[in-house]
């Protein structure tokens, strides 16, 4: 916690103008809070971990900003950045091909996929992180997302490293069809193995988290945390309204709604996350030390893959 407000150097905030058109002011000097509409000096907002000082609205964070916020300085080592998406369906939609979409997203976001994974430490305690980047195609889960998460879970099982996933996603990636759906099974299967190795999985749900991500690995966790006000659910609110023709209740699908309905363990303010996670990690440390290592990293060949090199991180 002490370090927390002084680690602004690690933030690389990006206001994705296609996601938040009303919030970006030219040159990003000022940022308008979507909840209280107050204008905030962007640097001030960053100093406050992108939480509105007036109304506590938690702005969305890129994956790297999230890692910067959570991990001890210089502790993060990225895993598997060389795993890159393919286009198994030769998918072309109304706005062009999937490959073009990937190239455009990569150029704009600087990321190569929607999930950032690696090892890190929180207050000196080692763990693995798997963090969604909502700016990358709504952090939709496709083959690379699934593969990176599974490799991470396998290393965790092998090394006795607790896993923290941070999920914000629109769900499965349509452009990879059933391959994407099957990542739900694949990631959960890896977590089943992790569970058998008695290594804990902590899941942090942040705004917005929907569909195939909420309905798979993100809710198969030993402890489920959520950020205040985050929207979390299976079906999106517009779909529900369209199908049921009902007006949605106040606060529907917020983290607070999920807590009330027994779906999450805790709601944690962003500023208290590091300390909270450190406390959790301490609780599980003795159990993790007695963990039975599994022959973790299977490195199965992909059903459809072009392997340029077998290099693996970690």
């Amino acid at each position: 916690m002490r370090d927390f407000f002084h680690r602004r150097g690690a933030f690389r905030p990006r206001l994705a103008d296609d996601q938040q058109p009303d919030q970006a002011i030219p040159e990003d000097l000022w940022t308008k809070c979507p909840r209280c509409h107050e204008l905030q000096y962007t640097k001030e907002l960053e100093r406050n971990a992108r939480v509105c000082p007036k109304c506590s609205y938690h702005f969305r964070l890129s994956a790297r900003a999230r890692v910067g916020l959570l991990a001890d300085p210089d502790s993060f080592v990225e895993w598997d950045p060389e795993v890159r998406p393919e286009d198994p369906l030769r998918f072309v939609d109304g706005s062009g091909s999937y490959l073009d979409k990937l190239a455009r997203t990569e150029a704009k976001s600087g990321e190569t996929e929607a999930l950032l994974t690696g090892r890190a430490a929180i207050e000196g305690r080692p763990l693995a992180l798997a963090v969604c980047d909502f700016d990358f195609m709504g952090a939709s889960m496709g083959s690379v997302f699934g593969e990176k998460l599974v490799r991470t879970a396998e290393r965790c099982a092998e090394l006795g490293l607790p896993l923290l996933t941070v999920s914000a996603s629109g769900g499965a990636r349509m452009h990879e069809g059933l391959f994407s759906l099957m990542q739900m099974a694949k990631t959960v299967a890896a977590l089943a193995r992790l569970g058998r190795a008695r290594v804990p999985h902590f899941s942090l749900l942040v705004d917005p988290c929907y569909g195939g991500v909420t309905a798979s690995y993100a809710t198969v966790a030993d402890v489920i945390l959520a950020e205040p006000g985050a929207l979390i659910g299976f079906a999106g609110p517009r779909v529900i309204e369209q199908i049921t023709k009902q007006k949605l209740p106040e606060g529907f699908q917020t983290a607070e709604f999920l807590l009330e309905h027994g779906m999450v363990d805790l709601i944690v303010e962003r500023g208290a996350l590091r300390a909270g996670l450190a406390t959790l990690l301490a609780h599980y440390a003795p159990a993790v030390e007695q963990q039975v290592p599994l022959n973790g990293h299977l490195h199965e060949p992909a059903l459809v893959a072009v392997v340029e090199s077998g290099a693996a991180g970690g």
Partner: peptide, 25 residues
């Protein structure tokens, strides 16, 4: 586990990257 573990389509780029997206088999 191995059955579902294999399902996916990805490639592994070299460290120097710049590899064009190949046709997947």
């Amino acid at each position: 586990y191995r059955k579902f573990r294999r399902i996916g389509a990805w490639r592994e780029a070299r460290a120097d990257d710049g590899v064009p997206l190949d046709d997947a088999g």
